[in-house]
Design a protein around this nucleic acid. Structure first.
Length: 955
RNA sequence: GGGCACGUAGCUCAGCGGGAGAGCACUACCUUGACAUGGUAGGGGUCACAGGUUCGAUCCCUGUCGUGCCCA
């Protein structure tokens, strides 16, 4: 029995359990051993995160693909899991410690802190998984993985060691994006450029050998800068080589104000004569461009800030090198000043001495950390880098050759642009939560990289024994006793960028580096579904790592879906706090409604601005389906065993079979092409506007009428079409369809595992295989054919007949509404001058037409009765004898309007046909079509004129 | 500054070389035996603007204006 009301919450809770208990989504089911695999790896959400709209969309689309392919008989593996999200998770836990006024991370130490994070993960790690289950995600939950699992960690270490061995990972001292709040390096991608209204300071740098005076322009050179506080680390001034103004100064020196350092004026094309004063100060240790300029001219790199962005001058040998008397005192004074406070104080001090020429308002882009939100400091440190340029080469080639394709295709350009200009990837993070880098250092700083500590230590000790730093005896002792080697060999403290482990996801989750059956069967995966915002972070890196370690692309298709934005069109993000909670929508309208909405709005290449009214509308759609199924149940509709819809005899039933097959094809093709919105609208239209609005209504007289073969067949077909609907809708609305599947009939299994209405067309490869297996006589073995179901129940005759009924009913309803005839008033219908076909058809549909068009009677006549309202239905006159009921003038006007329309159609067609160029150039079908249109319009006009004439005679 | 999108009905969006579509909202009518979370009918758009290609342009090309995003 179907409950009277559709209550999504109940159904969804129940069906989740049904699926879980039956292990419906488990990959590698024995009965599908011979099926072709279909694999998707989930973009792993942050382990401690919670479901947001982006997840909801992303996972809905993946689930549609998985459920679709599962129903098509494939062995589906949707590999789930979560990401440890280094910085994000560490921040959450640290914030928690602070809120609870517990000891800070540094106070408790690394080991205790990590315990604490694991504890937090244990507490909240299930949240996102449970939310994905609420959404209906049909992942193989038994295979859930976590990026810091033992197995995945092993993969990370192996990858690091091998890339290091191959020279593709190396340590380098260069400028990195340093986050002075989180105290870690971050990659270029984690930096966001933010437009900031700041100032441009014009500073006077005195020229060596001249007496500085603010009034004597010859005594100084003006440099323009947005960061005056870094002037303490200046080691040069650059001017453009072609800049006439400064040509004579190149090669001379300036004396750095406040500091007294003597620094050269160099010619470098980096300096833009149009910008500022045309001369720039060069601070190689605090600016990426200056770093390069400095390298070109052999300038020193002087870091004047510490890790937290405070001035660090006292005892700073680089800074103090070769400075005159008094430098130490200045250093004392400014020591420890926070960078923005320092800026203010230094500018003031410069002003005191007349070194500031002017200050202009200036808007420019300033790098910010995407997590911390603070201004990033270019900082000179040792970090680990991946040689991305080398790894990118095959990854670019694979997309060029089409081994991997992006859908929509235009994202390939974005991918290429980035990959072709890729920079070394900084992978070390000064954090604790993550995969600790497998590198150990000796007392001289020499690095030993190995998969295990034992291996690294034994290498190191061997080396130092050989170098005679320690004796063999000492080496043996240190090897055996950790305490003995403490302080001699130390492990790198840093962890890896979270995206380093994510990059391995498509194979690490399958068991690599072990040689598992899953790796063999499911790599490469079929499709990756993700948002464009992580093409660089993730997709590109999976391509690089996948190709390097597996020698094959990780996925053949990358489907890039829209971003769900907030009402202003801004990207939703946790840090901005503008997230709409999909769980609220699920609570209110149900997961099925939310899923359908997202699918229906997932048009390629367009972002989604979610409107609640749409979700409500699709909830109503679910209710509609619910009630249609109740109707079928109330009429005892059921499908007998071994029923073959193709053998249906009733026209109406042949028609619905035809329409169902047509829809099945539309839905299948749309999903195959990742056109989720087309698939959704095709099934929506079919359920509501075909099945409910017409089929069920047209079937009612038969269902409510006498018992007999027609009634039996119709009952069967109502149920059959319902079942087909449940299947076609299942990928979009899994809960309600599974529930209805279960309660509407005795079933052999779950809908999730039922077979899809249409079997897939044979692929080119399959056809080739078949051909290869065939003898050369051109025959296809009959045993092969049943694999493919080409039947579309095509029935043009049924389509024509039902089409006529629909047109007739619609025309009558329309004119009744126009003439304000109340529904309670039944009218008669006279089919005037009907052709034999119509005369044969009409009696078959008397009950239906009477019921739907509110008629008292249907009859035939040679001509329409006097004063009747005359309608044109498929070229014939249908007359409603309403003399006295309708206004003569109104009917006259209505006919005039119709004639006007026909005239316009005729004119348009004639104009085209009169155009010689059109007839000569347009496709033959188009011309023919135009002729048909003209004929049809002319016939229509003639009938209408006749009708008008009859009206006039009557009036 | 470079790149990628997008400007279609009041709103949210499909369509994309041969007569403008959906959902929501709106109007009128309807307690018809699955469903008022419903039914029936209807109003509403020089498809941003200007050129060009074409027999024909909402659709292709160019430019302008406007909006959004990405990268410097």
């Amino acid at each position: 029995m179907i409950e009277k009301n559709y209550q999504p919450a109940d159904i969804e809770a129940r069906m989740s359990l049904v699926w879980e208990d039956s292990r419906a989504f488990k990959a590698g089911r024995p009965d599908r051993r011979d099926a072709s695999p279909f694999t998707i790896v989930i973009p792993p959400p942050n382990v401690t995160g919670s479901l947001h709209m982006g997840h909801a969309l992303n996972n809905t689309l993946q689930d549609i693909l998985c459920r679709f392919e599962r129903m098509r008989g494939r062995d589906v593996l949707w590999q789930p899991g979560t990401d440890h999200a280094g910085i994000a998770t560490q921040m959450v836990v640290e914030r928690q410690l602070m809120e609870r006024q517990q000891p800070s991370r540094r106070e408790m130490g690394r080991e205790k802190f990590l315990e604490r994070v694991w504890q937090w993960k244990a507490e909240s790690g299930d949240t996102i998984i449970n939310q994905l289950k609420r959404l209906g995600a049909s992942c193989d939950w038994s295979r859930e993985r976590f990026t810091m699992d033992e197995g995945l960690s092993r993969a990370v270490v192996k990858v690091f060691v091998e890339l290091h061995r191959d020279g593709l990972i190396y340590k380098d001292k260069r400028l990195v994006n340093w986050d002075p709040k989180l105290l870690t390096a971050i990659s270029d991608l984690e930096v966001q450029q933010v437009e900031v209204k700041g100032s441009l300071w014009y500073l006077r740098y005195p020229i060596e050998g001249k007496t500085f005076s603010p009034d004597d322009p010859a005594s100084f050179i003006v440099v323009a800068t947005t960061r005056p506080e870094t002037m303490l680390g200046d080691t040069g001034v650059a001017v453009h080589p072609d800049d006439e103004r400064y040509r004579k100064l190149v090669g001379k020196h300036v004396i750095l104000p406040l500091v007294g350092r003597k620094i050269p004026i160099v010619a470098d094309e980096y300096s833009d004569p149009e910008k500022g004063s045309g001369a720039v100060k060069v601070t190689p240790a605090h600016d990426f461009n200056d770093f390069d300029v400095g390298k070109r001219h052999g300038l020193r790199q002087i870091s004047v800030l510490d890790r937290e962005g405070r001035l660090d001058l006292v005892g700073n040998e680089d800074y103090l090198h070769a400075l005159p008397e008094g430098a130490a005192q200045f250093a004392e004074e400014f020591q420890g000043a926070e960078r923005f406070a320092a800026r203010k104080r230094i500018v003031e001090r410069l002003q005191d001495f007349g070194f500031v020429e002017r200050i202009e308002p200036h808007t420019h882009m300033v790098p910010h950390g995407d997590r911390s939100g603070v201004v990033i400091e270019p900082y000179l440190t040792d970090q680990w880098y991946v040689d991305a340029k080398t790894l990118a080469r095959p990854a670019i080639a694979a997309v060029r050759s089409g081994e991997t394709t992006f859908v929509p295709k235009n994202w390939e350009k974005t991918y290429f642009d980035w990959m072709e200009n890729i920079q070394p990837w900084c992978i070390s993070r000064q954090l604790w939560w993550g995969h600790q880098i497998p590198a150990w250092y000796g007392p001289d700083g020499k690095v030993f990289v190995a998969e295990t500590e034992e291996e690294a230590v034994s290498h190191a000790l061997g080396y130092y024994v050989e170098q005679e730093v320690i004796t063999e005896e000492q080496g043996r002792e240190m090897a055996l006793d950790r305490g003995k080697r403490e302080g001699f060999i130390t492990r790198d403290e840093d962890v890896l960028d979270t995206w380093f482990s994510s990059a391995l996801w498509p194979f690490s989750t399958l068991g690599w580096p072990d040689d598992t059956p899953e790796v063999k069967r499911h790599y490469p995966t079929d499709v990756l579904v993700t948002g464009f915002d992580i093409i660089f972070f993730w997709v590109a890196r999976m391509m690089m790592m996948g190709l390097h370690f597996m020698k094959e692309v990780p996925f053949s298709t990358v489907y890039i879906h829209a971003l769900v934005r907030d009402e202003k069109g801004a990207k939703m993000s946790k840090s901005k706090g503008n997230v709409i909670d999909p769980l609220n929508l699920i609570d209110e309208y149900g997961a099925d409604a939310l899923r359908f909405t997202l699918a229906a709005m997932a048009a390629q290449g367009r972002d989604i601005k979610l409107a609640t009214s749409r979700v409500e509308g699709y909830r109503n759609f679910a209710t509609k389906l619910w009630n249609a199924c109740r109707f079928a149940e109330m009429n005892n509709c059921a499908v007998p065993e071994n029923f073959e819809p193709a053998k249906a005899k009733e026209t109406l039933n042949r028609w619905i079979a035809h329409e169902t097959a047509h829809t099945a094809r539309e839905v299948s093709e749309a999903i195959e092409a990742y056109r989720f919105n087309d698939a959704a609208s095709a099934i929506y239209r079919f359920v509501w506007n075909v099945y409910c609005d017409w089929y069920v209504e047209l079937a009612k007289p038969v269902l409510l009428g006498e018992d007999g073969p027609a009634r039996a067949e119709t009952r069967t077909m109502v149920a059959w079409a319902r079942d087909e609907i449940l299947k076609l809708l299942h990928p979009f609305m899994p809960f309600i369809t599974e529930e209805l599947w279960e309660v509407t009939a005795k079933r052999e299994g779950l809908l999730a595992l039922a077979s899809w209405p249409l079997k897939p067309e044979p692929t080119a490869e399959q056809l080739a295989m078949i051909a290869a297996a065939m003898p050369n006589d051109g025959f296809i073995a009959p045993v092969v054919l049943p694999m493919f179901d080409h039947s579309d129940f095509s029935d043009p005759a049924a389509e024509a007949e039902i089409g006529w009924v629909i047109d007739l009913v619609t025309a009558i309803r329309s004119v009744r509404a126009e003439m304000n005839i109340p529904p309670a008033t039944l009218t008669a219908l006279v089919l005037a001058g009907a052709a034999a076909e119509t005369k044969a058809r009409a009696p078959r549909w008397t009950d239906v037409i009477k019921r739907m068009a509110r008629l008292s009677d249907i009859s035939f006549a040679e001509r329409a009765p006097d004063g009747a309202v005359q309608l044109l239905v498929r070229g014939e006159v249908a007359a409603l004898p309403l003399k006295g009921v309708v206004d003569f003038a109104a009917e006259h006007a209505r006919l005039d309007k119709e004639i006007g329309k026909a005239d316009a159609d005729i004119k348009r067609a004639e104009a085209k046909l009169a155009n010689e160029k059109f007839v000569a150039n347009a496709a033959e079908e188009v011309v023919e079509e135009e002729r048909e249109k003209r004929e049809a319009a002319m016939a229509r006009k003639a009938k209408l004129l006749e009708a008008l004439e009859r009206l006039k005679q009557a009036g």
